[in-house]
Design a protein around this nucleic acid. Structure first.
Lengths: 108, 108
DNA sequence: CAGTTACGTAACCACCTGGTTACCTCCAAC
DNA sequence: GTTGGAGGTAACCAGGTGGTTACGTAACTG
C-alpha cells in the first residue's frame, strides 16, 4: 500500500487514473492528457505498474493500460481506521446522507 | 489533499497518525514510537501540521498533538470515484462464495 | 539565576523524484 | 528490407525528502 500511496500522491498519475476509471487507454492517449514529454509519462506508468494500480496488455505496437483498483481498496481499508473520526463530525451536520447508502459489508 | 497524500505516504507519519487516532499525544511520546532522532520527528510533525492532519496545543513546555481527520476525509472522497470499481469485484466474489464456489480460480 | 526538560530550527548530506533529450526495440506498412 | 509510429529505457540534472548533529528557545525546578 505504501507504493500505491506514493503513486497517487502525484497529480499527473492521479490524472491518468481518473482517465483509466472511464476505461482502458493507450500510453499515447494518457500522454496526451499531460503537459510533459513521453518518457516522463512512461515512467509515471511504470510507477503505476509497480504499485499494481494498472495492468498492461499489448495490442499491436500499442500498450493498452487499464485500472486495477485493488491497491486503492487497500488505501480505503487503511482509511477505515480513521473513518469514524470524521463521520461522527459529519453526523453532526447531516445524519446519514453522506456515504453509506450502500450498506457497509464490513459492518454488516 | 495533495499534501495529505504525500504526508501519509510515509510510514513514520502513518505510525504517528495511528497513535493519535487513540487520542492526543505529546511530541516526545510520538518520538518514542519511532527509531529516528527527535529532529526528524519534529520535521515529520511539521509535515503533518502543514497538511492539516494534526493540531497542536501547548501545555507547559509540551506540545500536545491531536488528529484532525478532515484531510483524510478528502482522500476518502477522492477514493469515492473508484470505489465502485472494487466493490463490484467484491460483489462478484460474494456472489461466487454464496453460490458455493464449485470452481476454484485465482483470487489475485 | 543556573540547570534540566521538551521541542523546534539550521545546516548538512545521501538518496529519491520528476522532468528533460537521445536512443532503442517492436510492429505494421510499404 | 526500409521507413514510420508507438512506447519503453538510459543518462543526466534540478529540486525535494528524510535522516543526522549542533544549536536555540521556552518553561519548570532548585
Amino acid at each position: 500500500m505504501e507504493a500505491a500511496l506514493r503513486a497517487v500522491a502525484d497529480e499527473s498519475r492521479r490524472t491518468m487514473l481518473e482517465t483509466l476509471a472511464d476505461g482502458p487507454a493507450s500510453a499515447g492517449e494518457l500522454a496526451a492528457l499531460l503537459p510533459i514529454a513521453r518518457p516522463g509519462v512512461s515512467r509515471h506508468l511504470r510507477v503505476l505498474r509497480e504499485a499494481g494500480l494498472v495492468d498492461v496488455r499489448l495490442e499491436a505496437q500499442r500498450r493498452i493500460y487499464s485500472l486495477r483498483p485493488d491497491p486503492l481498496a487497500e488505501i480505503d481499508a487503511w482509511l477505515g481506521r480513521y473513518r469514524a473520526l470524521w463521520e461522527q463530525r459529519l453526523d453532526a451536520l447531516h445524519t446519514e446522507v453522506s456515504r453509506g447508502k450502500r450498506e457497509r459489508r464490513s459492518t454488516g
